[in-house]
Computed example of a mutant assay.
Amino acid sequence: MSKTFNIYCDESTHLKNDGHPYMLLGYVSIAYPQIKMAKEQIKAIKVKYNYEGELKWTNVHDATFPMYNEFIKYFFTTDMKFRAVVVDKSQIDETRPEYTFNDFYFRMYYQLLHHLSNMENEYNVFFDIKDTCSHKKLHTLQDILKWNSSIRHFQFIRSHESYFVQLADILMGAINYNLRIEKGDVEGKVMAKRKLVDKIQEHADISLNRTTPLSKKKFNLFFISLK
């Protein structure tokens, strides 16, 4: 029997000259019938902590840690799934033909979404709108993924409109932060963020710095090596 899923995509430190070593693209997926209940439960957690702002990794600090910790616990009790692809931007060699940074950005999205599909199901894919070039990107992504008949709908939304894009932001932020600590770019002094990284690793039962098997459907990471 066919099922419908919504896929909410986000990006982290994906720009060429943003000063960050890694590019991450990721998504949170949820079965369409579960969306309404999940929204209500996420909203209830925000009300519990009297929090009115957007849920973002950059807003994780000591005062907000209990709420973000509860969101992480909630995510791992649901059927929602998370997947991200990661690349060390220093490995991107733009001297190679058809290997520009922009080309690679779209290849990353292909890799992100390529393995999501059960062709018996249908998928609606939503992208966080970032800039004035977003609609051009949407057309390119549609063209790249046109072979996949299970993806029925592509649309841009703004992150403040979707709790699920916000969840993707939190999870990718944690992965990125952990990688940057290991690379020595940050020292991990923001204890709330360090603790949230540990909580995610504990719940997912994986390392956040290496590729996970495709069989790990709940929380899946793919580190693309270009060497």
Rank of each mutant, 00 (worst) to 15 (best):
F154G: 10
A174L: 15
N124I: 02
H153Q: 10
E161P: 00
Q166V: 00
Y163M: 09
T140Y: 04
Q142L: 03
G173E: 12
Q142C: 08
Y123Q: 04
W147Q: 03
H139P: 01
R158Q: 12
F154N: 09
G188P: 00
K136N: 07
K136W: 02
D128G: 01
K130N: 07
D128N: 08
R158L: 06
V186M: 02
D169M: 07
H160K: 12
C133P: 03
M172P: 13
N176H: 15
I170D: 09
K137V: 03
E122I: 03
A174Q: 08
D128A: 02
G173T: 11
I157W: 00
M172T: 10
F126I: 02
V165T: 13
N148I: 06
N118L: 04
I170S: 10
G173S: 12
A174E: 08
K183D: 15
I129H: 13
E161T: 06
R158W: 03
S150R: 09
S162K: 03
M172H: 14
S162G: 07
N176S: 15
L138V: 01
L179M: 15
S159R: 06
G173A: 11
A168E: 10
D131Q: 07
V165P: 01
L167K: 04
Q166F: 04
D128L: 00
E187T: 06
K146C: 07
D128I: 02
D143H: 04
E161V: 01
A168M: 13
F154W: 10
S149V: 11
Y163S: 06
V186I: 14
Q142T: 06
F126S: 04
L138P: 08
I151F: 15
F127T: 02
D143N: 08
R158V: 00
S162M: 06
E161C: 08
S149C: 05
S159I: 03
W147M: 05
L179C: 12
I157F: 02
N118A: 07
R158I: 04
M172W: 08
F156D: 10
